[in-house]
Computed example of a mutant assay.
Amino acid sequence: MKKEEITITFYAAECGEFHEMGEYTKCNSLEEAYKKYRKYCKTSGNMCPAIEFSIHDPDSFYSDLEYPLPLSAKDRELLELVPYYNEHPLVNEAIRRVEQLQKQQEKKKYRNAAR
């Protein structure tokens, strides 16, 4: 019997606390989720936009649950509450990637301000 591959899915939430209060979109990639998150920050910043993830692992209690992806050092503390997520390689790779996306966004903002 073939073992099922463990995967990660990303979501963009217009309101990270109450999904029914805005758009909540399953995304094809972290980059797509980040782009929607940035849009929500501009249009609905008062609703606490978020990027969330779900690990699909048939051997885990945490499979298919949605959890916020840390977008700052302060948010990382939330992740530490769940060691499964905090230590998961797919989650840690997503955190590294979103940090890169944030740095690219900052550089773009700085270049545009310098014009």
Results as ranks from 00 to 15, higher is better:
57 D>M: 08
52 E>L: 13
6 I>K: 12
15 C>D: 14
57 D>K: 06
47 M>V: 02
87 E>R: 15
5 E>C: 06
50 A>I: 03
114 A>M: 10
40 Y>K: 05
96 R>A: 13
61 F>G: 02
55 I>H: 01
65 L>P: 00
62 Y>W: 08
2 K>V: 10
10 F>A: 04
71 L>F: 09
105 Q>P: 00
28 N>L: 11
64 D>Q: 13
39 K>W: 00
16 G>I: 13
85 Y>F: 15
115 R>L: 11
32 E>A: 06
93 E>K: 11
99 E>W: 07
49 P>W: 07
91 V>Q: 03
78 L>C: 07
87 E>I: 02
76 R>S: 15
12 A>I: 03
85 Y>Q: 04
25 T>G: 01
19 H>K: 11
38 R>K: 12
112 N>Q: 14
88 H>G: 07
73 A>F: 13
64 D>K: 14
85 Y>I: 02
43 T>M: 04
16 G>H: 12
109 K>W: 06
111 R>Q: 08
22 G>H: 04
100 Q>G: 07
4 E>Y: 07
47 M>C: 05
73 A>H: 14
73 A>T: 14
53 F>Q: 01
25 T>D: 01
32 E>H: 01
112 N>L: 12
12 A>L: 05
2 K>R: 12
46 N>G: 03
108 K>D: 03
64 D>G: 10
9 T>A: 15
95 I>A: 03
33 A>Q: 01
28 N>P: 00
36 K>A: 01
8 I>D: 12
13 A>W: 04
57 D>W: 04
83 P>S: 09
66 E>D: 10
16 G>D: 12
61 F>P: 01
87 E>G: 05
63 S>Y: 07
9 T>Q: 15
14 E>N: 07
12 A>G: 07
9 T>D: 14
90 L>K: 00
48 C>M: 05
23 E>K: 13
73 A>Y: 14
89 P>T: 04
31 E>C: 01
37 Y>A: 04
32 E>I: 02
92 N>W: 05
101 L>D: 02
92 N>E: 09
14 E>C: 05
10 F>T: 08
15 C>L: 00
114 A>H: 10
1 M>H: 11
20 E>K: 12
18 F>R: 06
74 K>D: 14
84 Y>R: 02
112 N>P: 00
59 D>N: 14
15 C>M: 01
24 Y>F: 13
72 S>H: 10
64 D>F: 09
103 K>Q: 12
13 A>H: 13
24 Y>S: 06
75 D>A: 15
1 M>N: 11
54 S>Y: 04
70 P>L: 08
52 E>F: 09
73 A>D: 15
79 L>P: 07
12 A>F: 03
35 K>A: 13
9 T>M: 13
70 P>W: 08
60 S>F: 07
98 V>Q: 03
51 I>A: 03
62 Y>I: 00
37 Y>P: 02
99 E>A: 13
81 L>M: 13
12 A>R: 02
102 Q>R: 09
35 K>W: 00
95 I>T: 03
101 L>P: 00
49 P>Y: 07
40 Y>W: 08
1 M>W: 09
26 K>F: 08
76 R>D: 15
55 I>V: 10
91 V>E: 06
111 R>I: 05
69 L>S: 06
11 Y>W: 14
56 H>F: 05
42 K>Y: 05
100 Q>T: 08
3 K>F: 05
11 Y>M: 09
55 I>K: 00
106 E>I: 07
106 E>L: 11
7 T>S: 15
8 I>Y: 12
28 N>F: 03
56 H>M: 07
21 M>Y: 09
43 T>S: 12
51 I>M: 06
106 E>M: 10
